[in-house]
Write a protein that binds this DNA or RNA. Sequence first.
DNA 1: TGAAATGTTGGGGCG
DNA 2: ACGCCCCAACATTTC
Length: 476
Amino acid sequence: MPTAVWWIRRDLRLTDNQALTAALQVADQVIPLFILDPFFDRSPYVAAKRLAFLVRGLHELDAALRQRGSRLIIRQGKPVVTLAQLLAETGAHTIFAEADYSAYARRRDNAITTSLPLKLVDGVVIHHPESVHKQDGTPYTVFTPFKKNTWLARPLPRAADILPAPMHIPTPPELASLPIPSEPDLPPDVPFTPGEAEAQRRLVTFTHSPARQPVITHYAETRNSLHEVGSSYLSPYLRFGMISARQAAVAALQAMAAAQTPDARQGAETWLSQLVWRDFYTAVLYNFPYVSNSSFRPAYDHIQWRNNPANFAAWQAGQTGYPVVDAAMRQLTQTGWMPNRARMIVASFLVKDLLIDWRWGERFFRQHLVDGDPANNNGGWQWTAGTGTDAAPYFRIFNPISQSQKFDTDGRYLHRWLPELANVPARYIHAPWQMPPLEQQRRGFLIGRDYPPPLVDHAQARARTLAAYRAARGTT
DNA sequence: TGAAATGTTGGGGCG
DNA sequence: ACGCCCCAACATTTC
């Protein structure tokens, strides 16, 4: 009786799972396996909240498997060793896994392939990184042609392509398994309930909630808002494959086709673009692995960063004196998530106001984001720093005050995350240090006592950064 | 998916 | 009526 292993890494779902489907096609019995890899215990990039989200997701997956005559098998150890042992123990002939294109995963999987029957299956992105390239076969480094000339031109997934969750998954009953880790639990203020069922609910609500206009209808504008519910809130689920990118793309394309107004169409297309960015950055990291620790553009490896540790600590703690930066950093450390606009604002502030190496910020994000993903996080940071593929030009420097006024006009987001600003009137909420001393006294709110003065003067910091980037460009 | 500096235009106050 | 100045509003260029 042929047995196959379904090695689960970042595909914690039963619906539209190409690795699971492939395993069921060639085997009578399938072993759903998750390996606790000690490598991650030593990684400086692991986030407690992301780990908790993953572990709770494993419990959810196990429950779903048990409804289908199966269960999740947990083993601990170096994957190559653990897999070899499991094959010997069960006589399983093939291991199926969804291909993961991050650097560690590729090294690990390439090494395993030399000694074990590991079959890698597509699914983490919509188009394989090698399938989207220029006419001459070289990889794209600019997003728009990547999307328009190739990504959209290739066959796109349709509803009929989505693989239904298998009704029954036969699994050997006598297999030993470690318990699924129960700790750490997800803190209650993290707004993400793990699991595939929740991911499916969110996708439906976001794309075609029947009660009112779904959020995707206005996504093009609302995604930039700091306080509105204008995001899909699906990033952590996509990160761990609790929903497939392919299914998300089908929903986006359906919303585009069904749109009644140009705005609604634009909203759906903008969301689809976010899924394309996800493919793009995965392909960039795949094709240019050095970007994980160097600038895509080598000239920018010569920037003379200031890297002031006290400034970095203030940024991390949300104590820079710039409310929009501090609110976003508090939201990040408390909930493990920030809207995209907030990510760009705090990244621009770290790199271009404090002149701190983008890698420091990249690491901190990975230590806190529930959705933290090597490719997307690296791509986003290099974009803001101006060092990456298709990056923001070096001179594009966000003004933290005008960004705050533009995307949180009434200060609702600032008040939500910065209770110490409760007594600051609307007029000064984006720049509290401009409040006259007499009014500070009258309101019982003192800059320097209740809230820090601005860590840097934005105009000076901007000039300093332009000079540092100019100098780095001059070295090539 | 910028912001600041600089340039241009035109209305209105004023002598 | 005219010239002059101020300045808001908008456009263009520069970083």
